[in-house]
Amino acid sequence: IGSLMYASIFGNVSAIIQRLYSGTARYHTQMLRVREFIRFHQIPNPLRQRLEEYFQHAWSYTNGIDMNAVLKGFPECLQADICLHLNRSLLQHCKPFRGATKGCLRALAMKFKTTHAPPGDTLVHAGDLLTALYFISRGSIEILRGDVVVAILGKNDIFGEPLNLYARPGKSNGDVRALTYCDLHKIHRDDLLEVLDMYPEFSDHFWSSLEITFNLRDTNMIPGSPGSTELEGGFSRQRKRKLSFRRRTDKDTEQPGEVSALGPGRAGAGPSSRGRPGGPWGESPSSGPSSPESSEDEGPGRSSSPLRLVPFSSPRPPGEPPGGEPLMEDCEKSSDTCNPLSGAFSGVSNIFSFWGDSRGRQYQELPRCPAPTPSLLNIPLSSPGRRPRGDVESRLDALQRQLNRLETRLSADMATVLQLLQRQMTLVPPAYSAVTTPGPGPTSTSPLLPVSPLPTLTLDSLSQVSQFMACEELPPGAPELPQEGPTRRLSLPGQLGALTSQPLHRHGSDPG
Rank of each mutant, 00 (worst) to 15 (best):
I158P: 02
Q362D: 13
T443F: 06
R316K: 13
F235D: 13
L457W: 12
P450Y: 12
S287Q: 15
L481I: 08
P482Y: 04
T443D: 12
S394Q: 12
L410H: 03
Q255A: 08
R274K: 08
T437R: 12
L377T: 10
S466C: 08
R189L: 04
D191F: 01
P271L: 11
E161D: 04
Q424S: 11
L427Q: 06
P321I: 06
Q464F: 09
L153I: 05
L427Y: 12
R405D: 03
N350A: 08
G268M: 10
P200G: 05
L406M: 05
P317M: 07
L499A: 11
G268K: 10
P440L: 09
S358G: 08
E320T: 14
A431L: 12
Q464S: 08
P322M: 15
L165G: 12
T458L: 08
T426G: 08
V176A: 06
G154K: 08
Q402L: 13
I158D: 02
P503M: 08
Q238I: 11
D190H: 07
T416W: 05
T213L: 02
A415Y: 04
L327F: 09
E201K: 04
L129Y: 10
E407K: 05
A269Q: 10
L396S: 05
G508E: 11
I136E: 02
T443C: 12
P370W: 04
T219G: 08
S225I: 09
P453D: 12
S411G: 09
C182P: 02
Q402T: 05
R302D: 10
P226C: 04
S203G: 12
A132P: 02
F352P: 11
L309G: 12
F312R: 14
V195N: 01
S273P: 09
Y363M: 08
R168H: 15
Q255H: 06
S305A: 14
R138K: 13
V348I: 15
P306E: 15
A269E: 11
G233F: 10
V435N: 15
S349P: 07
S303R: 10
K240G: 11
L129T: 15
C182I: 08
E194Q: 07
N378K: 13
R239Q: 13
Q419T: 11
A261G: 11
V176Y: 03
Y363W: 05
F202A: 07
M328K: 04
P374T: 08
Y166P: 04
R423H: 10
R316I: 15
K240E: 11
T426L: 10
R506S: 11
S335H: 11
T456H: 14
P169S: 05
E407I: 06
L341R: 08
P292I: 13
F206P: 01
I158Y: 04
Q467N: 05
S509C: 05
N164Y: 09
G360E: 09
V428S: 08
F352H: 14
G234S: 09
R177M: 05
Q483V: 08
S273R: 08
P442L: 09
E258V: 09
P311W: 02
T500H: 10
L462R: 10
L144P: 02
S463Y: 09
T408R: 10
R217T: 09
S452Y: 14
L262N: 10
Y166E: 12
L376P: 12
D183I: 05
C369H: 07
R302Q: 15
G170R: 01
S272W: 07
L504F: 01
L399N: 01
L153A: 03
P318I: 15
D157A: 08
I152K: 01
Q502N: 12
P223M: 10
S228W: 07
H188I: 04
P318R: 13
V195Y: 01
P511Y: 10
F235C: 08
P479F: 10
R409F: 05
K251T: 08
V392W: 15
G439D: 12
P438N: 13
P442Q: 12
D204G: 09
K333A: 12
P226R: 09
L418C: 04
L196G: 03
T253E: 11
V465G: 10
T229H: 08
S304R: 12
S382F: 09
L504K: 05
P429G: 08
I351F: 07
P380W: 01
Y199L: 02
F135P: 03
E365A: 11
L262T: 10
R423N: 09
G174E: 03
G160D: 01
F206W: 12
L216S: 01
L399Y: 08
L396F: 11
E211V: 09
G356L: 06
H505T: 06
A478L: 10
F202M: 09
D397Q: 10
D336K: 13
S244H: 11
S290Y: 04
I136G: 01
L396M: 05
V149W: 01
Y166R: 06
N220Y: 13
R389K: 11
E232P: 09
S314E: 12
E472F: 06
N404R: 14
E407S: 04
A261K: 09
D357F: 07
S225Y: 06
L130S: 01
L406W: 15
Q495H: 06
S335T: 06
E480K: 09
A151P: 01
E320V: 13
Q464Y: 13
L193R: 08
M425T: 13
N378W: 13
Q419W: 03
R389A: 11
M414H: 05
S501L: 13
C471I: 05
N378A: 10
I212C: 03
P475T: 09
R237Y: 09
R247E: 15
T337R: 09
